[in-house]
């Protein structure tokens, strides 16, 4: 056995390494910040083995495969010999699982973080419901408006600030 097998690797250590794996489309936040890592188990298939359970953000998010590959190679770099990535659908991922640190990092990156509520699936008409207040990540103004519910990636909506006049991405509730 090589040196890696002798490492005493615990789940906390793996969580720490996962916190360094960034989202391929929003490099400032990690997969842990994003809330897509649901579970980590270590040692089930040997001393240097690990199973990471992740949940997809959006059904068709093209980043999910890259994320799985990135997790796999990051953990192998740290000496794990057998890495299994499992996908879990339920409960469905929600932006509520995004960490406070992740929200701050998004804002610093120019993307307004999601308001603290999941998408309201109870109603079919948008006009009847109040849109969450979204502060401009550039100037902080609350005078912003929705341009489109569908932005540059599946997880974002397009907004515009009425004060600094900059358009910006909003990580929409989900």
């Amino acid at each position: 056995m090589n040196a890696a097998a002798e490492l005493d690797i615990g789940p906390d250590q793996v969580w720490g390494w996962l916190a360094e794996v960034s989202d391929p489309e929003i490099p400032v936040i990690s997969v842990v910040d994003l809330g897509i890592v649901r579970e980590v188990t270590v040692g089930a298939a040997g001393p240097a083995s690990c199973t990471v359970t992740i949940t997809p953000t959006y059904s068709g998010c093209p980043a999910m495969e890259v994320i799985a590959q990135d997790i796999d190679s990051a953990l192998r770099r740290h000496g794990l010999l057998q890495v299994t990535i499992e996908t879990r659908l339920a409960p469905a991922w929600t932006t509520d699982w995004m960490s406070a640190a992740g929200r701050e990092k998004l804002k610093g990156y120019g993307i307004a973080p999601p308001a603290q509520q999941v998408v309201d699936i109870s109603g079919i008409l948008r006009r009847s419901r109040a849109e969450p207040a979204v502060a401009c990540p550039n100037c902080g103004s609350a005078r912003t408006r929705l341009v489109s519910q569908f932005g540059s990636t599946a997880c974002k909506a397009l907004y515009r600030c009425d004060d600094c006049l900059e358009p910006f991405d909003y990580f929409k509730c989900h």
Partner: peptide, 16 residues
């Protein structure tokens, strides 16, 4: 349950 979160956005847009 996964899909309806996405479809809620779809149906509101087309209705509008």
């Amino acid at each position: 349950q996964k899909s309806i979160k996405e479809v809620t956005y779809h149906v509101r847009r087309t209705g509008d």
